[in-house]
Design a protein around this nucleic acid. Structure first.
Lengths: 128, 128
DNA sequence: AAAAAATCCGAGTAATATACTCTGATATAA
DNA sequence: TTATATCAGAGTATATTACTCGGATTTTTT
């Protein structure tokens, strides 16, 4: 996603190109981008000269969206994952640790939702 | 650890007792407490009528210490784990995502280091 | 029209981490 | 002496995760 952000003004970027730069297998990257497209974080262009583009400007895509798309809901413990409320154990009432995990989960989301792709590439080091 | 905090003024609490209350196998709990003892978060008393006690008052033990003891260094990515600096990939220089993981790691530690066992048991609900 | 370059998609594999168990030794109280 | 504990290291089993494979579809280039 950082590579796509850097290429935002250009045409679509192919998996092959990104895979080469980041030293990831093209086949694996493909899986990842399918998920990103289904989440509408990127658009795809099929066929020769095709590839992927960010669906929105880098400033409007935050890391929280990317991470949650690829890794699922952020949660230090299963029982505080968004969508699985109460599924995990029956003692949510008396559980004294649950509050800790909820607080941690919320802070984690805050940190990630507060950083955009734009932030990441504008604070970049020397090498492009 | 919450159970030990609740029992802080009493004598040592046995694994059997805690395992029963929390519905964990005594054998597994045993492994956990060995680690906690080696980290000097609890003291042990061997033999009949033995068990474990907190090594310090509940207000002086925070969740960060407990979690790091049992789960290892807190790190959303291997490469930002305390002690494995630079081991993970060679491109730490040009890596634009590393900063995100470092920030997240730091906030996670802050949250956990800011909550003591005392905090957890004093905000407790109805059932003891 | 044919070939090449790319995404799409579902299914499968393999290594690893994690949760958990087993067996036996040692220490202490009753 | 017996019962009740912790101590300790090794082993197992399940689930997750990272990753691969084969083939279909779409678009550009020749």
């Amino acid at each position: 996603m950082v590579v796509l952000a850097l290429n935002y003004r250009e045409g679509p970027t192919s998996i092959r190109e990104i895979a080469g730069k980041e030293n990831i297998s093209p086949q694996y990257l493909e899986q990842i981008f399918l998920d990103l497209r289904r989440a509408e974080l990127v658009n795809s262009v099929r066929g020769a000269k095709g590839g992927y583009k960010l669906a929105r400007p880098p400033s409007e895509i935050n890391i929280g969206d990317v991470v949650r798309t690829l890794e699922g809901p952020i949660a230090p413990m299963e029982c505080v994952a968004e969508g699985s409320e109460g599924d995990c154990c029956e003692r949510t009432q008396e559980c004294l640790t649950r509050g800790v995990w909820e607080k941690l989960r919320d802070r984690m989301n805050e940190v990630l939702d507060d950083i955009s792709l734009e932030d990441m590439i504008s604070s970049r080091n020397i090498n492009p």
